[in-house]
Design a protein around this nucleic acid. Structure first.
Lengths: 258, 258
DNA sequence: CGTAAAATTGACTGACTTCAAATTCGGTGG
DNA sequence: CCACCGAATTTGAAGTCAGTCAATTTTACG
């Protein structure tokens, strides 16, 4: 019944983190109508001000939320990894209040908003899981605000790296101390409210101190605990303990995707 | 049927902004079980890490969300005004990821989380309204992040003042250019990621330029348009146009509360 | 290879912080 | 009504973290 490489399987896996879904719920999630869309580098998934027509599940690649300020500055608000539902925020409101873009090329499953609304209110377990997904996104956003508002460049950058690593590992997409990070230093600067030059100096300083190594688009953290201490990183805000832990065999098979 | 000064009326008024509720829905909202709780200055509504037992509707006074950082700093994440449901975020998750406190003394209606979950999933219109309430909170949080991350002290402070004024007016609690703001400059500093000294200099500069006047706990904005221009304030992120605009006569009567 | 984008480096600047002291405010009790 | 006291605000001077500007090097990729 469950196809091991069903496009929506990563989404299902994620939803089952937030609420236990019975077999009918799971089937209903996988039966959601969708269309695959491929976007190239910096392609827009959602534009600020547009009326939402689809909810997008990120299948491969990385995406980010972003807001443009009058003075031309850009604030990157969140990073998304495969399995994330990239614009649930917008799907239940009239119009998008921010942009969503992909970093590198990415594949998305586009689900019509009507179908999402329908499943959310017809199947309360799925609805709860979806709601929690948006609430955890909100929690990450609060942490991000605190990070930008109260920490210095070194702490801020460290926290960002810890969050990326932890979330990727939590999603089953790699190891927290060794992961792919396809952003430029300019992107990172816009995410952390710093300048590219200062991000560069900060990253180099972490490298010099033996905490990290950067190569290409990949990040290696040599001393996770030390970095987490600098960052004051506590994964509680990601609500990992909410994990329903009821992942049936048929679905765990897709955990390696992609 | 509708009591004009029912404690939950401000909450109902707010929910009807986000989705049209039929008479049965409205009755169900007002029939939610609750207990009134009075908190004095800086009292805690929710503590970081605690398991939620109630969702709290702010009836009078102002509240704020807050996170403490290892270095002792505090980031104020959001301000809440009467009618706001102060911890929906926490109610659907296992444990709170931030603190909620009141500024001055405040009155809250404490609704058991089970009752909220029940109404949310039994009455889909109410559920949608509650969900949207949390989504708009998320949108405000994104704006807050962008504000702290990308704007200078003057723009940041102006944006904060515009948001306060606009939201109070939108909630029917006053005029955008003349409102009560019972925070110290230290609070404001923690909200905007600045130091109290610099907030002071910034506020004085706005005063000196004839844009604002501060008296006691009140704020007067003399030139809203000028302040909004400095702030790059666009109320779209508050999703005012989502207003269901179907406010029945019986309920509008309470718009003057408190 | 050649080229454009990204990363790195250096010198200088400035917005905001820090520290510390003075002043005003707001509530309270004599 | 006024004197008092702690909290909040205001002021000044000096310091710093991060920004700016501009040039150079490295990397990615056709």
């Amino acid at each position: 019944m469950f196809q091991h490489s069903h496009a929506l399987a990563p989404m299902l896996r994620k939803l089952m983190r937030w609420a236990p879904l019975d077999e009918a719920d799971q089937r209903a999630v996988l039966a959601l109508p969708y269309a695959i869309r491929t976007l190239s580098r910096t392609g827009y998934v959602v534009r600020d001000g547009s009326a939402p027509t689809h909810s997008c599940v990120l299948l491969s690649g990385y995406a980010f939320r972003q807001k443009l300020i009058a003075n031309g500055c850009r604030q990157i608000l969140a990073i998304h990894i495969p399995g994330d539902i990239v614009d649930l925020q917008n799907s239940f409101l009239d119009r998008a209040d921010h942009n969503v873009q992909v970093f590198t090329g990415a594949e998305l499953a586009m689900v019509p908003v009507e179908a999402v609304r329908d499943i959310a209110f017809r199947r309360s377990a799925v609805g709860l899981a979806l709601w929690r997904e948006t609430l955890v996104d909100g929690s990450i956003q609060r942490q991000w605000t605190a990070n930008v508002g109260q920490r210095n460049a070194r702490e801020r950058t460290s926290h960002f790296l810890c969050e990326c690593g932890y979330r990727l590992e939590f999603a089953g997409l790699g190891h927290r101390a060794r992961f792919n990070l396809p952003m430029t230093q300019e992107d990172m600067a816009d995410a952390l409210g710093l300048t590219p030059v200062h991000i560069n100096r900060t990253l180099m300083s972490l490298d010099r101190d033996g905490l990290t190594t950067r190569r290409r688009n990949s990040m290696v953290i040599h001393d996770w605990d030390a970095l987490a201490t600098i960052a004051d990183f506590d994964p509680g805000y990601l609500h990992p303990e909410n994990d329903a832990k009821v992942i049936p065999v048929a679905v765990t098979g897709i955990a390696t995707f992609p």
